[in-house]
Amino acid sequence: MLDDRARMEAAKKEKVEQILAEFQLQEEDLKKVMRRMQKEMDRGLRLETHEEASVKMLPTYVRSTPEGSEVGDFLSLDLGGTNFRVMLVKVGEGEEGQWSVKTKHQMYSIPEDAMTGTAEMLFDYISECISDFLDKHQMKHKKLPLGFTFSFPVRHEDIDKGILLNWTKGFKASGAEGNNVVGLLRDAIKRRGDFEMDVVAMVNDTVATMISCYYEDHQCEVGMIVGTGCNACYMEEMQNVELVEGDEGRMCVNTEWGAFGDSGELDEFLLEYDRLVDESSANPGQQLYEKLIGGKYMGELVRLVLLRLVDENLLFHGEASEQLRTRGAFETRFVSQVESDTGDRKQIYNILSTLGLRPSTTDCDIVRRACESVSTRAAHMCSAGLAGVINRMRESRSEDVMRITVGVDGSVYKLHPSFKERFHASVRRLTPSCEITFIESEEGSGRGAALVSAVACKKACMLGQ
C-alpha cells in the first residue's frame, strides 16, 4: 500500500517536472537572447534605426563620474514606483581627507489618484512632500541643488532636461508624456511658492545606482535594477552614441532593455503563462523582457503555473481556492519566502493557508518547484541581457580580458534567497573573457542622484555659470 502511494507521488512529481521543464533555458538559448539583445542595442544607438529599435539606448548626458572633490548639501528625489523618497545628502571631506556622503531620508507613498490623475496632481503632491521634508529638517530658507531620480523612459536633451516617452509600472498621470519632466517639477514648486529649489540633474535609477557604486569602486561602469521592473545602464564610447554629437570619451546610456521583445525577438521563448500575464497587464505587448524578470510579474506567473497544475490534477487534489483564482493573489514576496523555507515546509504551508488552501507535504514541495522554475528562468533571462552589455563593452574597448564592476539594486536581487547566485553564475558562463565584480548599492537611487548633481554643480562652477 505504502509502495503504491510512494509510486503515485513519484509519478505525480515526474509529471510536474515535465510541465515545469518549459521554463528551462539551455545555454544556447541564452546565447541567442544575448546576441539578439546586442543587435537591438546597436539599432538603438544608431541614428537611422533608433526610432524602430525596441531597446532605445537613451543617452543620459552623464559623462563624468564623481571624483571626490564636490562638497555641499544636496536634496535628492526618487520616483520610480508607488513609494517616493526625499533625501538630504551631505557631501563633504571625511576623516583623513576621505570623501564622505551622509544621508537623511523619508519615504512617502503615492496615492492612487496622483498616479493615475493628471501630471499637475502628481507633481503638486511631490512638491508637497518636499515642503514637508524641508519643514522637518528646518531647511526651507536654503535654496538647495536638487537631483531627481526618475525611473521611467526619458529622452534627455541635457542633464536637466528630459522628455517622458511613456509611463510604465502602473503610472498613468495624463499630460506628462511628451513633456519635460524637470519643467513639470519646477512648475509645481513655483505653484507652491513656499520654498526654492535648483533642479540641476535628472537621472534614471540605473544611472543613480551606477554612480553610487562608483563611489565604492571606481571600476563600476554598469548599473542595473532588478526590482519591480528590470533595466540597466553602462558607459558607452561616445563615438557609438549617434544621437549625441561628439566622439570623445564616454557617456552613460540608459538601455531601457525592459522593452526588448516588443518587436518579436522573444516570441519563441514566451510561454502561455507569459501571454496571460501580458494580456492582463496595463501595457499589453510592451516591456516583454521586463515581464519575464521583474517583481511586478513574478508572483503572478507562479500563480498561473499553480492553476495549470491544479487543472492537471497534480496539486491540491485538483481544487483551487477562490483566493488562488484571484489575479495578483500570489505576491512576489511569497516566491522569495517559499524558496527561503528551511525544509520543514512550515513557511510554505503558512503562505498557502493564507490563500485558503490546506496543502499536503507533496503540495508544498511542488509549489516550491514552481517558484524555483519561474525565478530561475528570470535570473537566466536577466543574465543574457547583462552578458550582452558586458561583452559589447569588452569588444568596443578591444580588451582581451576586461575587469568590470556592476552596481545592482532592486528588491528581487536583494531579497530573493537564490536569485543573485543563479544570476551571477549564468552571467559568468556567458562572459568567459571578463572578470566581473557585483556590488549592491546602498540607498543607491538617492545618493547617486545627489552625486550626479554634485558633478553638475562642479561643472557649472568651472564653466562660470
Rank of each mutant, 00 (worst) to 15 (best):
L2K: 13
D4S: 12
M8T: 06
A10C: 14
A11H: 08
E14P: 13
E17A: 12
A21S: 11
A21N: 15
A21G: 06
E22C: 14
F23W: 13
Q24D: 13
Q24M: 12
E28S: 10
K31N: 08
M41P: 04
M41Y: 04
D42E: 09
L45R: 04
L45G: 01
R46D: 13
L47M: 12
E48S: 06
V55A: 03
V62K: 03
R63S: 14
E70C: 09
V71M: 14
D73N: 15
V89S: 08
V89P: 00
V91N: 03
E93F: 07
W99F: 14
S100Q: 13
T103K: 02
M107N: 07
I110C: 12
P111H: 07
A119H: 04
E120T: 09
L122I: 07
F123H: 03
Y125R: 05
I126R: 05
E128L: 08
S131R: 10
D132V: 03
D135M: 08
P145W: 05
F148L: 05
F152C: 03
G162F: 02
T168Y: 02
F171E: 02
G178C: 01
N180P: 05
G183E: 10
R186L: 02
R192Q: 00
G193A: 05
M197H: 00
A208D: 00
A208S: 03
T209N: 14
Y215T: 15
E216C: 00
E216W: 06
C220R: 00
M224T: 14
G229R: 02
N240F: 05
V244H: 06
M251S: 06
C252V: 15
E256W: 02
G264L: 11
L266S: 13
D267P: 13
D274P: 05
R275S: 12
V277G: 07
E279V: 14
L288W: 11
Y289M: 02
K291S: 05
L292M: 14
G295W: 00
Y297K: 07
M298F: 08
M298T: 15
V302M: 14
R303I: 00
D311P: 13
L315K: 01
G328S: 14
T332H: 00
R333T: 14
F334L: 14
F334T: 04
V338G: 06
E339G: 05
K346M: 09
Y349V: 09
N350S: 14
S353G: 13
S353E: 10
R358L: 13
P359K: 09
P359C: 14
R369Y: 14
H380L: 12
G388K: 00
V389T: 08
N391M: 14
R392C: 08
M393Y: 12
R394N: 11
S398D: 05
S398M: 11
V406C: 05
V408D: 00
H416E: 05
P417D: 10
R422K: 15
F423C: 10
H424T: 09
A425T: 09
E435K: 03
E443N: 10
R447M: 15
G448F: 05
L451E: 00
L451P: 04
V452M: 14
A456I: 15
K458L: 07
K459P: 15
